[in-house]
């Protein structure tokens, strides 16, 4: 049994003439500790799939099972606890809480966990310790994304979901963020599922899944994995 089992996931938006089938039956199995990159152009359904894995969105059909536990069978309360316990989420637009400072933003994640990591240690690892009393709008995009990663990993989640984590960042900062995600994966052993349309990022993955028009077009184990530091595009 795989750590994450994604079986027959279908999803559509709209009805009648405006109906769009976003996912047309996705089957994926992911092992614990893997870095999986979901590649695909805009509208391929990769972010929708990530939201369904994250329990933010519902599938029309199919199921997600984490350690054999199906999310579709969970009540809203259990689903909330599932997200709290298993998931860390990194968004493209960071989605930090603007009225909380950097430390407080990270602590929100810690507060909700029963096995949180040490806040100051995380802030130091992320290079944010000296900025901890600043508000998100006083930091650069890269620093905000690092905060978002801190908020996600402080819960020490089993699964780190990253939705275009470098989508709003320049080359140099993007590489910093990818190195950080890789470091987190090595240090804490979280399973990382990363959505991106940047083809180069696939090289740091253990497994690559290419999506197009809501279906898997290609899936393979990356035998020539390189470190995030060696990525180039």
């Amino acid at each position: 049994m795989s750590f994450i089992e994604i079986k027959g996931i279908k999803k559509h938006y709209g009805e009648g003439e405006s109906r769009v089938d976003v996912l047309n039956g996705i089957d994926i199995e992911i092992e614990k500790g893997e870095i999986v990159v979901l590649l695909g152009p805009s509208g391929s359904g990769k972010s929708t799939l990530l939201n369904i894995i994250g329990g933010i969105d519902d599938a029309d059909d199919g199921y997600i099972a984490i350690n054999g536990e199906k999310t579709a069978n969970m009540s809203e309360k259990d689903l909330t606890l599932y997200r709290r316990k298993h998931l860390g989420y990194v968004f493209q637009q960071y989605n930090l809480i603007p009225n909380l400072n950097i430390k407080e933003n990270v602590e929100v994640g810690a507060y909700l966990s029963d096995k949180p990591l040490e806040t100051d240690e995380i802030l130091k690892t992320l290079g944010l310790y000296e900025h901890r009393h600043k508000l998100p709008n006083q930091l650069s995009g890269g620093q905000q994304q690092r905060t978002s990663i801190g908020r996600a990993i402080i819960k020490n989640p089993d699964i780190l979901l990253c939705d275009e984590p470098t989508g709003a960042l320049d080359y140099k900062t993007s590489k910093e963020i990818l190195k950080l995600i890789e470091e987190v994966n090595h240090k804490y052993g979280n399973t990382v599922i990363m959505v991106t349309h940047n083809d180069a990022i696939k090289n740091m993955a253990d497994r690559v899944i290419k999506l197009r028009d809501g279906a898997i077009r290609k899936e393979y184990k990356n035998e020539t994995k390189v470190s995030a530091a060696d990525l180039d595009w």
């Binding site: 809203e76 997200r83 709290r84 316990k85 989420y89 968004f91 989605n95 930090l96 809480i97 909700l112």
Partner: peptide, 16 residues
Amino acid sequence: IDKGQTEAGRSLGLNA
């Protein structure tokens, strides 16, 4: 308020 704030809250494990 940006929709992302709700997504952030839900993804952190807060209920509605």
